[in-house]
Amino acid sequence: TTVKLGDIKVTFDNPEKAKKYAQKLAKIYQLTVHVHGDTIHVK
């Protein structure tokens, strides 16, 4: 599962960890989390 934020891409083996990371980023940057299959976009 890949978390994308602009040019930053972080890949996790564990989808749950990816989701938590995405939510953490979203909170920090006051953005929202969008899940598209294996990719989680923070924008």
Rank of each mutant, 00 (worst) to 15 (best):
Y29L: 10
Y29F: 12
K19R: 12
A22N: 00
V10N: 02
K20H: 08
Y29E: 03
T1C: 14
I8S: 07
K24W: 15
P15S: 07
P15N: 07
K20M: 10
V35M: 09
A26C: 15
A26V: 04
L31E: 01
N14Q: 06
I28R: 13
I28F: 11
K43A: 12
D7E: 10
P15I: 10
E16M: 10
G6Q: 05
V10D: 01
H36C: 15
Y21S: 00
I40G: 01
D38F: 07
Q30K: 13
A22K: 02
T1N: 04
T39F: 08
K24G: 06
V3T: 02
L25S: 00
Y29M: 05
K43Q: 12
H34E: 13
P15Y: 14
Y29W: 08
T39Y: 07
L25M: 07
T11S: 09
Q30H: 14
K27T: 11
I8P: 01
Q23N: 11
H34L: 10
Y21Q: 01
V33R: 00
D38L: 08
L25F: 03
K20A: 12
V33C: 11
A18G: 03
F12T: 00
G6I: 06
F12W: 03
H41K: 04
T1V: 12
F12I: 03
V10W: 15
K19P: 00
G6E: 04
P15Q: 08
I28E: 09
V35L: 08
A22L: 06
K17P: 04
I8L: 13
K9P: 02
I28H: 09
E16S: 08
T32F: 08
T39S: 06
A18D: 00
L25W: 06
I8M: 12
I28S: 05
T32H: 08
Y29G: 03
A26R: 05
Q23L: 12
F12P: 01
K20T: 07
A18P: 00
K9Y: 13
H41T: 13
Q30M: 09
L31G: 11
H34I: 13
K19E: 08
V35S: 05
G37K: 05
T1E: 02
Y29N: 04
H34P: 00
L5Q: 03
H36I: 15
N14T: 10
K9D: 06
H34N: 05
V3C: 09
A18W: 03
Y21F: 13
K4L: 14
V42W: 03
T2E: 05
D13A: 11
V10H: 05
T11R: 11
T11P: 04
I28C: 14
K9R: 12
G37I: 04
V3P: 03
T32A: 09
K43C: 14
I40F: 07
V3E: 02
A18V: 01
D38N: 14
N14D: 14
K27G: 08
H36M: 14
K43E: 10
K9V: 14
I28P: 00
T32Q: 10
D13Y: 09
T2H: 09
T39G: 03
P15K: 09
